[in-house]
Amino acid sequence: MQLILIYAIGLIFGLGISISGMANPAKVLNFFDIAGTWDPSLGFVMGGALLVTAPGYYLVFRRGQPLFNREFTLPGTRLIDRKLVLGSLTFGLGWGLAGFCPGAALPVVSTGNQDVALFMVSMIAGLFAARWMIAQTAKRRDAQLRHRAPQ
């Protein structure tokens, strides 16, 4: 029962991505090309999403706990550090090249589009490469400082 509901939630997201145009790299890249073939659509996607999520979260959090779990699983760290900023900046550089972001590409993987497949495979490779590098850094720090580096 829980999994069917979760499946339906994924489906709503995937339908939203399909309707919004987020899965179209040409459209996404044009949002950032104000000096060229500007298409402001992406701003409306973000705006529409926030319009629902901001008040929706407020109401959900007021209930005190989620339906199927004892508590909400929110990101544990509130740290704003170099890793967050440089990582996000790097993501942006990649997004500006590819035109796909993870949430927009995942739903359309099922369409069999070859560019999406290429993006997804190389993104997952990058994901594992980064996890490996982060583990290496942590190991080195462990050896140096003899305390566990936060992940």
Partner: peptide
């Protein structure tokens, strides 16, 4: 279309937080 798609993305995000408590 983009706003409507965005609304659905938002709805899914709220529903996941409501159901499982995940972002």
């Amino acid at each position: 279309a983009s706003t409507f798609g965005g609304l659905l993305i938002g709805l899914a995000s709220v529903m996941l937080m409501w159901a499982r408590g995940n972002v």
